[in-house]
Computed example of a mutant assay.
Amino acid sequence: MVGKKTFKTIISMLLIGTTLFGCGASSTPVNTMGEKPKNKVKIGITQFIEHDALDSARKGFIEGLKSKGYEDGKNIEIDYQNSQGDMQIAQTIAQNFASKDKDLIFAIATPSAQAALNATKEIPIVITAVTDPVKSGLAQSMESSQNNVTGTSDAVSIKTQFELIKDLAPKAKSIGIIYNTSESNSEIQMEEAKNVSKEMNLNVIAAGVTNVNEINQAIDSILSKIDVLYVFTDNVVASSIPLLVDKCYNKGIPIIGSERGQVLSGALATVGIDYFKLGFQSALSAVEVINGKKPSEVPLSTLKEMTLSINEDAIKKLNINIPSSILDKSEKVKNEIK
């Protein structure tokens, strides 16, 4: 017969074994630290500023999560914060997310991504709308960040955009560019634009700004010297498209954008990416992380699909002729331009 003490010991061992077995059999996704996450995966979304491209990326991310079975209020909990173009606020948001021990941070745009990485080297960070993650100090390479970052880049070829300028405004020689001197994303694009302009015998006339309030003065300083205005995927400048449209179109100066949202806001044309699709693609990377992969094991990616978008109302406002060979292969959008 088994003694009372021995019997109690056996029961205790069976209970412990059952508990351990139950944990091992759990289908709940694990995080990159190998720990069992909370019932709801806590996701902090930090967006640098509001404009069509970044808003679309956020919506695409949420939809991408949903397509894989992760829905806010059910098995994930989303905390969305917007820094309204203020880097200090972006840093505060990132620090708060880190201190509240989010399971994952989704950082939209370069400044928000940099703030998130400065705030935590442990919590997985999925980025999007970052032109060059490597040059921006967010990753060692596109193949592997070698840290807690993965996600998508919105890099587009400036040479392709300048070729579009040649097609739509063949007489243009001077390209105006307003860029944010405090954003590495813009500095990188500025360097590429200068190199491409030399190859294509174009003259770049640039004006630097540090915030939205300086846009008006910057465009006024170059307006009389340029034939076309080109707009980067620069968050500060992109949020001011309506102002730039008003200033430029009254002088008959076309605006070429770097992404579709800028055309929807009034720019004449672009060969760009769909930021909703970019955000959706970012969500697929996030799901890999939620389900147990380390961010460094998930390569960073770009969106290969490019679309020529032309604003029909801008054509009318500028009273210009665009070859049918270009119009026929473009996506036509409308934006009422006063």
Rank of each mutant, 00 (worst) to 15 (best):
M1N: 04
V2H: 06
T6F: 12
I11Y: 04
I16N: 03
T18V: 14
T18F: 15
L20E: 07
N31S: 01
D52N: 11
K59Q: 14
I62M: 01
Y70K: 03
E71Y: 07
N75I: 04
I76N: 01
I78P: 08
G85V: 12
I89P: 08
Q91K: 15
Q95N: 04
K102S: 09
I105W: 14
A109I: 03
A109Y: 07
T110G: 04
N118V: 00
K121G: 13
E122R: 13
T128F: 04
P133A: 02
Q140F: 14
Q140L: 11
S141N: 01
S144I: 09
V149P: 06
G151F: 12
D154E: 05
V156N: 13
I158Q: 13
K159T: 10
L168P: 06
L168N: 03
K173T: 09
S174R: 15
S174V: 10
I177Q: 08
N180M: 02
T181I: 15
T181Q: 15
S186C: 09
Q189K: 14
M190F: 15
E191Y: 09
V196H: 11
E199I: 09
N203C: 01
I205N: 08
A207P: 01
A207H: 07
V209P: 09
T210Y: 02
V212M: 14
I215K: 08
Q217E: 15
D220C: 00
S221E: 10
D227Q: 03
V228T: 06
V231L: 15
S239R: 06
I241G: 14
L244Y: 13
K247A: 12
N250G: 13
P254T: 03
I255H: 07
I255Q: 07
I256Y: 11
I256V: 15
Q262C: 04
Q262K: 03
S265P: 06
S265G: 05
L268V: 03
V271N: 09
G272F: 00
D274W: 10
Y275L: 13
Y275A: 09
G279K: 08
L284S: 07
L284P: 04
A286V: 12
A286Q: 11
V289G: 01
S296I: 10
S301Y: 01
E305G: 10
S309D: 14
S309Q: 12
N311D: 02
I315Q: 00
S324Q: 15
K329N: 03
N335W: 00
